[in-house]
Design a protein around this nucleic acid. Sequence first.
DNA 1: TCCCATTGCTACAATAAACGTAGCGACATG
DNA 2: CATGTCGCTACGTTTATTGTAGCAATGGGA
Lengths: 114, 114
Amino acid sequence: MPKQGSAMKKRTVRGSASGRPIMALLDLLGRRWSLRIIWELRDDRSLTSRALRTACDEASPTILQTRLTELREAGLVELVAGDGYRLTALGKELFEHFLPLHQFAERWSRFKAR
Amino acid sequence: MPKQGSAMKKRTVRGSASGRPIMALLDLLGRRWSLRIIWELRDDRSLTSRALRTACDEASPTILQTRLTELREAGLVELVAGDGYRLTALGKELFEHFLPLHQFAERWSRFKAR
DNA sequence: TCCCATTGCTACAATAAACGTAGCGACATG
DNA sequence: CATGTCGCTACGTTTATTGTAGCAATGGGA
């Protein structure tokens, strides 16, 4: 992709051509920082773009902005003026599936340690 | 970003330095094809590396092999001689959290279509 | 009003990850 | 031996991400 202006954007989700929404979703969530962003916005948290950047281990604003735009277009995240980014109702619903992931991660971590 | 020394063999999971397993897990699952691979191995399916490649839309064997190695080292996927790749018990447990994702993806798709 | 801090967001060059093609050795079947 | 498939890798090209710097817009004092 030669240009990354706000005009031309490769926002097409891989796998969406297959007509299988799950593939498009898996691809969207499989992009770097997507899962992390959703995670950081859990529990009705609202974070400004910079607070989000801090939460995401000082990730590059370029890619965070790209992901945020994608997630907003996907209807999972919204930007509320004067309040920052937050999950939409749909986004919260999605997060519910990841909630048990925290517990799992702990167990997984202990497994790996062996 | 914390510098990933070239000494580290690139198999280190980003975020694992934070000591928060959830970050390591989110990073591992956030790599391309990770979620997809787990998805394709659902329901006790066992796929050979090439069948998996076909299932994953002819993804490059290079990256598939990389992901498979990572997932195997993470204890989520295993390679059974003469049978192909499959989810481990831990991997199946993880997949349980993604099961409702299919339904969600359908709903999400309809939302996007509007 | 001017100053200044913060917001969301972007340009641009450099680096890292992923892609695509080709092909390896090992093993099996004919 | 010939053929096919297995898991897996080399390598050159393309794409994605990083890091630094900075923009215009907004708001709050002084």
